[in-house]
C-alpha cells in the first residue's frame, strides 16, 4: 500500500528538457520565477504562460500531470483572490459594492496577475521535478552550491544526506508496512476509533521504526567508513556533468525568452 508513493514525482523521458544539465535547469527555474514577477503587463504574462506550456509540450509531459500538480493550489488561489479583491482600493470610483465592501478595477487586475503568477510558478517548478531524477537534482544542487564551501557551508554533507534520505525512503516505507502488519496481527486497532485513538495507535508503529532507523544509521555509517568515506575532501565523482550542445541551445532559448518577457515592460503599460 505505502509502496506506491513516488517521491519527487519524476516522469522519465528523453526530451531535450530531460537531457538538460540539472544545474542549468535549476538556474533556469529560478530565473523563470524572477522574470515572472518582473512581468507586470498582459503581454509579458501571456508569454510566460506560453513559455511554460511550450516546455511541457517539448518535455512530453501529459497535461494531466500539470492539472494534478495545480489542483492543490486552488484553495490558495481562492484565498488570495478574496483578500485582494476586497482589500485593494483604487483611485477612481469603486466598480461595484457588496455590502460594505467596494471592489475596484485595480483589485480585479491584481487578482488576475496573482493567479497567473501562482499557476506559472507551480507549473514551472513542477516541470523541474518532473523532468529531473532526484539523484540528478541532488547532484546539480551540490555542484551549484559548491562556492558556498568558502563560507564553510557543508555542501557535500547536505547532498550526501539528501542522497541517503532518498535511498532509504523505500526501505523505511517497506519496514513501516511490516511493522503495521505485525502490530495489526497482535490486535492493534489502527483504522478505527476516534481521532485521538488513532494518533495513539501510531506510537507502537513509530517507536520500532525509529529504533530500527537508528540501528540502520549506525550500520550504514560503519559500512561507509569501511569504504574509506571521509567527507567531501578530495572526492571525485563517477558521473561528470558536461555541457553539451543541447545545453547550449536550451540556455540560448531560455535567455531569449526571458529577454523578451523582460522587454515587454518597456513597450506595454503594466496592469498593476
Amino acid at each position: 500500500m505505502l509502496k506506491d508513493i513516488t517521491i519527487g514525482q519524476h516522469f522519465p523521458g528523453n526530451s531535450p528538457v530531460h537531457r538538460l544539465d540539472p544545474r542549468i535547469k535549476i538556474l533556469a527555474t529560478i530565473a523563470y520565477v524572477v522574470f515572472l514577477f518582473l512581468a507586470t503587463n498582459a503581454v509579458g504574462l501571456v508569454l510566460s504562460i506560453a513559455m511554460v506550456l511550450a516546455l511541457y509540450v517539448v518535455a512530453q509531459i501529459p497535461l494531466k500531470m500539470l492539472k494534478k500538480s495545480l489542483k492543490p493550489m486552488i484553495p490558495i488561489i481562492i484565498f488570495t483572490v478574496i483578500l485582494n479583491l476586497f482589500f485593494i482600493t483604487g483611485d477612481g470610483d469603486p466598480l461595484f459594492r457588496v455590502w460594505k465592501i467596494s471592489v475596484y478595477t485595480e483589485g480585479i487586475m491584481f487578482c488576475i496577475v496573482m493567479i497567473v503568477r501562482i499557476l506559472c510558478l507551480i507549473s514551472g517548478t513542477s516541470l523541474l521535478t518532473y523532468t529531473t531524477s532526484p539523484i540528478q537534482l541532488t547532484d546539480g544542487l551540490e555542484r551549484l552550491m559548491k562556492p558556498l564551501n568558502v563560507v564553510k557551508f557543508p555542501v557535500h554533507e547536505m547532498a550526501m544526506m539528501m542522497t541517503i534520505a532518498l535511498r532509504f525512503i523505500p526501505t523505511l516505507i517497506e519496514e513501516t508496512d511490516k511493522i503495521i502488519s505485525a502490530q495489526k496481527s497482535r490486535g492493534a486497532m489502527l483504522d478505527s476509533g476516534s481521532f485521538t485513538d488513532r494518533v495513539k495507535a501510531l506510537v507502537p508503529i513509530l517507536i520500532p521504526l525509529f529504533i530500527s532507523a537508528f540501528r540502520r544509521a549506525d550500520e550504514l555509517a560503519t559500512a561507509m567508513e569501511c569504504r574509506c568515506y571521509h567527507g567531501g575532501a578530495n572526492r571525485t565523482r563517477l558521473k561528470q556533468l558536461k555541457i553539451t550542445s543541447n545545453d547550449i541551445i536550451c540556455t540560448a532559448v531560455c535567455v531569449v525568452a526571458f529577454g523578451v518577457i523582460f522587454a515587454t515592460r518597456f513597450f506595454f503599460t503594466p496592469l498593476i
Partner: peptide, 26 residues
C-alpha cells in the same frame, strides 16, 4: 544486512562509492 550498506540510489553509483571517496579519476 545488505540494505544497510548500500549508500546510493543507483547500483553503479553505489559500486563507485568507495572509489569516489578514494579520489580515483572518473
Amino acid at each position: 544486512n545488505p540494505d544497510n550498506q548500500i549508500v546510493a540510489t543507483i547500483v553503479e553509483e553505489d559500486v563507485a562509492f568507495a572509489l569516489e571517496n578514494m579520489g580515483v579519476e572518473p
